[in-house]
Design a protein around this nucleic acid. Structure first.
Lengths: 142, 142
DNA sequence: TTAGCTGCAAACTATTTGCCCTAAG
DNA sequence: CTTAGGGCAAATAGTTTGCAGCTAA
């Protein structure tokens, strides 16, 4: 995703474009490692002199509100962020903490069931699968 | 679920039975409100004089490790806990924060797809649906 | 008897906020 | 030129931990 496209995305949300926001969002759109705020800060700082961690948090909250990024909370401490906002799911390794994306069959039926059963109007879904990644499977001592 | 049954559950995990643990687990098994640690503390304190919040946290962590309770983290700050550990899903109201249980079709196919696509060995699933509860649907200003 | 638990308070960590200045529009 | 945003440091909130006395087994 080019810088121009990202600028357009920000404009379309009536969000003022700043170098910090541009770089943070670009970074997130260009990785699939689901970094934490701290990791984003480390990486983006490299070409954004003087960037502060508070700005990273503020920016992530802003982007989140406009559905430009996803926040993923796992059992561990720091939230992880995902620049891919298309419906997709995640697998989480209980041993090493690795998070991988996974495109699965949409779970629309479940959405409908939920609306009927609970009376909620469902807008979005989050599906996480917990287990052990290939690397950790052999050596995991439950 | 009777106190006797809860004691048996704790024993079967080689967990020492204390009044605090008994009361916290009983409370969680007997509610479907997905309380936070603070709420558990408030409620259990009423008939457990001198209970401390740290004990609530320690106990919840212990129960979690033994899969006797589930921890649910949402966008808001405090984790919520669920004493129902059978596979079921949750709907979360983006307006008022209410969390309801929902028994849906098991998503086993998705589990298999994920194992094939990612090479992970999947052990458990968490499916959350986000939207607006009946009460909040009429008055939500997106 | 004794390993493990509790309560308390202090520590810790992720995240948020207030203030002042800079920069986007 | 005007107002939102950035940087910094201090504040906050949820959660964890160290320690000393207590208790379940």
């Amino acid at each position: 995703m080019s810088a121009q496209e990202i600028i357009r995305e920000l404009h379309s949300c009536n969000v003022r474009v700043t170098p910090q926001r541009l770089k943070i969002l670009s970074y997130l759109k260009g990785t699939d490692t689901h970094p934490t705020a701290e990791e984003i800060y480390q990486n983006v700082s490299e070409n954004c002199y003087g960037l502060s961690l508070a700005t990273v948090y503020n920016t992530l909250n802003l982007l989140k509100e406009h559905n430009l990024v996803l926040e993923l909370k796992y059992g561990d401490l720091a939230s992880r962020f995902d620049g891919n906002v298309m419906e997709h799911y995640h697998v989480y390794c209980k041993k090493c903490g690795k998070v991988s994306d996974f495109m699965g069959s949409p779970v629309n039926e479940v959405k409908l069931e939920a609306e009927e059963a609970t009376g909620f109007a469902i807008e979005s879904v989050r599906l996480d699968l917990y287990g052990y990644c290939g690397r950790c499977q052999t050596k995991h001592d439950a």
